Each structure stands twice: as structure tokens, then as C-alpha cells.
Simulated assay, not measured.
Amino acid sequence: MSTRRTFIRQTGALGALGMLGTPTLAGSGFRESPQSASSSSRWPDGSRLVVSVSMQFESGGQPDNAESPFPQNMLPGFRDLPAATWYEYGYQEGIPRMLDNWDELGIKVTSHMVGAAVLKNPDLAKEIVTRGHEAAAHGMNWRSQYSMTYPEEKAFVREGADAIRKVTGFNPVGYNANWLRRGDNTLKILKELGFKYHIDDLSRDEPFITRVEGQNFAVVPYTLRCNDILLIEGKNFSADQFAQQVRAEFDQFYKEGATRRRQLSISFHDRIGGTPQMVKVTHDLIRYMQQHEGVTFKRKDEIAEVILSEP
């Protein structure tokens, strides 16, 4: 049986698509470039599959009574103290444990940092960068920015990035909105503030280029399928079930990687992915991946540089 790609080539559908031109997305301030539609390219460094790990640094920046495993039944005017300790676990235990795991595995990750969390735990934020990981921006706090006015949103993004820059000395070039919910102005604001990429996109399994104000801007897709907050907290997966799902995704991507560019994204949150059982299964999972020829681990700023440097 021929593959979908072979079928498209044989029927000339690819050429027909090219005649349609590239669509402009109304109200978004950007459009896809022609080269972003290509799925047949390979990684220029010869990688068969690139794995990109996210480590969300959010705890300490959450509002009072933020969503937690505890029932959302607190009376008005009271603070959910046990829930606050659940978040505290993220910076007391979770991130330090994950950092040791990344070192032992010999990989570097991207840490999406909430500005308020960085200011509350500056030494930990600095340690993440000192140990060779990328600091990416994740807003100043947990506010949703899609409903902000243009000036409000720009100040919000700038404040969060400035907190990272001031504390760690790292200049963030990547961005992740709260629950990926950017607004119509977000990409234009990111471009104006010197960012190079964002991750708030689930449309593809490879990075691509979009046009923002007439210039190239990178999209390094995120994941919900391999995301601990969705699977562990949202769907009550066990650590083993999480690892099984990610491994299945890896196996399929590795197969596809023989003929096309593939990126496997995995996301861990400080108070979830940093628990002992999650770190253990993650260690075993990544060792499994490292046994496969042509698998490389890249930070998201590295991935963005790869595709921005291509013709």
C-alpha cells in the first residue's frame, strides 16, 4: 500500500496546493510562510529524531487557592494552606530532583519560568541556567493575557522577561502563554520585544516558520499528549501509564523520522514531574530513547535557531 506522501506525489496534489497560495490569518498579525508547509525535510545535523523537554517553573507564582488536587470547596475569604504546600513542593523538591536527573542523563532542557516564581526563588532560577538549561518566559504571573489590551499585554510579557533577565542573566528568546492561550496581539508583541519563538501551538510535530510583521518567527510546537499536568493531574494517569504513552509516541516518531523531520516534546511541571516516581520512570524512558541511533536532545532555543537559519 502506498503512503499518503506517495499518493500526493503521484496525483500532483502537492502542486495543486501550491497554486492556492498561502493563507493570511485574519486578525492574527501573522501568516504562514510557504516553507512552513514542508514536512519532507530532515534535521540538518543528521538527527533522525529530536526530543525537546520542557520543565515548567511556575510554583511560587500561583495565586491564592489555585487549582490543586484538593477539592475546590474552600469557603470565601480563606486560604487553602495544604494546596499551597503542594505548590511549594515544586521548588523545594521537584525542580532540584529533576535537575539532578537531567545531569545524570546528560541532557539540557527548556525551563518556562513565571516571573513571580523566579523572584520568589532566585537562587533556584539561577541554578537552572548555571546547569546549562534554557530560561524561557512564561508571563509575569498566572494571569490570562489573551483578554488584555495591547499595552497591558506588552507590559505583562516584558515584566516577566525582565525578572528572568535580572535574576539569571539569561536573555529569554522563547515564550509560553498561560495554558497556551495567547491573544491576537501576542506574536506581534513578542517580536517587538526581541523574542525569536513561541510554543503555543499544537498543530504539528515539527518546528516551522511563521511570518510576523513581515519577518520570520519560529514556532516550536508544544504537547498535550506527553504532558504531565494533563495526563497525571487531568486524567489521573499513573507514572507507568505516562511513560507508556510517551514511549509509544517516541516509537512512532522514530519510525517516521527515517523520511521526515520529527520533534518529540515532553512537558514536566515542577510539582508533578519532579515527584520521585515520575523522575524514576522519566530516567528509564530517556535511557531507552538514548539507545536509539540518531536521537538527539535539544533545548527549544536551539531548535528555533536551526529553522531560523535555514534558507
Rank of each mutant, 00 (worst) to 15 (best):
T3N: 00
R4A: 10
R5N: 09
I8A: 12
Q10A: 11
L14T: 06
L14Q: 10
G15N: 13
M19P: 00
P23R: 15
S28E: 13
S36G: 01
A37N: 09
S39I: 15
S39R: 12
P44R: 04
G46W: 08
S47T: 08
Q56W: 02
S59P: 05
S59M: 12
D64E: 14
N73M: 04
P76L: 12
P76A: 12
L81G: 03
P82K: 09
T85D: 11
T85L: 12
Q92T: 13
E93P: 00
P96T: 07
M98I: 01
W102V: 08
W102P: 00
E104H: 02
L105N: 01
M113P: 12
M113W: 08
V114A: 00
G115L: 08
L119K: 13
K120R: 15
D123P: 01
H133G: 02
A135H: 04
W142M: 14
S144Y: 15
Q145W: 02
Y146N: 13
P151Y: 06
R158C: 05
G160K: 10
A161Q: 06
A163W: 06
R165L: 11
V167Y: 08
V167E: 06
T168S: 06
P172T: 03
G174V: 06
G174I: 06
Y175Q: 02
Y175I: 01
N176M: 15
L180M: 15
G183T: 10
L187Q: 12
K188Y: 07
E192N: 09
G194E: 11
G194A: 08
E206L: 11
P207M: 05
P207C: 02
F208E: 00
R211Q: 14
F217E: 06
Y222L: 09
Y222Q: 07
T223D: 10
L224E: 15
R225Q: 15
I229V: 15
L231W: 08
A239G: 02
D240T: 11
Q241H: 04
Q245Y: 09
A248V: 04
F250W: 10
D251N: 10
G257P: 03
T259N: 10
R260C: 12
R260Y: 05
Q263A: 04
S265L: 08
S267T: 14
S267Q: 11
S267N: 12
R271L: 03
V279E: 06
Y288H: 15
H292W: 09
F297A: 07
K298G: 02
E305H: 05
V306W: 02
S309K: 14
